[in-house]
């Protein structure tokens, strides 16, 4: 039986009737049309689907849309909603923190959470903070640089 789901995503309200089994990632991508969060696995390891729900990053492939009913969701599309890149986005760009870009939306969301909770992380703390996000291209080093640069910029 379909259920009504009310979500606020990147500042916009979405009301839809959905099957309970609809995963939040599929809701975001196919119902709300926000294809920034990606699907990289089924076992909630890779983190490509990472979005923030009420300020906390989650893997949206491991959550049903109905669970998020009433929540405030931020996806990568909402990070530069005003048209100005966020400091973390700028840092990823400047430091070459991405190659194929597939992990990047999730990686940026996790990195933002990291700095929200720890504005001056060490290299080890940065690595720990993005351990839920796999990247197959960069070897993570430029991502670490990017997070450090964003921290320095006061992101």
């Amino acid at each position: 039986m379909k259920q009504t789901t009310n979500l606020r995503i990147n500042g916009t309200s979405y009301v839809h009737e959905v099957e309970p089994r609809l995963l939040l990632i599929h809701y975001l991508r196919e119902v709300a049309g926000l294809t920034g969060p990606h699907i990289g696995c089924e076992t909630s390891i890779c983190g490509a689907c990472t979005v923030a729900i009420d300020g906390k990053v989650v893997k949206s492939c491991a959550m049903f849309a109905v669970q998020a009913d009433g929540s405030d969701i931020l996806t990568i599309e909402g990070v530069a909603a005003s048209g100005t890149l966020g400091a973390m986005q700028e840092a990823f760009w400047n430091e070459h923190g991405l190659q194929c870009g597939f992990c990047t939306p999730g990686m940026i969301m996790a990195s933002r959470q990291l700095l929200e909770r720890n504005p001056t992380p060490t290299e080890a703390e940065i690595r720990h903070g993005i351990d839920g996000n796999l990247c197959r291209c960069t070897g993570y080093q430029h991502i670490v640089n990017a997070v450090q640069a964003a921290a320095k910029a006061g992101a």
């Binding site: 920034g36 990568i76 599309e77 890149l85 986005q89 991405l98 870009g101």
Partner: peptide, 11 residues
């Protein structure tokens, strides 16, 4: 990068 870091690229 601008399209990739804003989630607007099309895979």
């Amino acid at each position: 990068d601008p399209r990739l870091i804003t989630g607007t690229a099309t895979y």
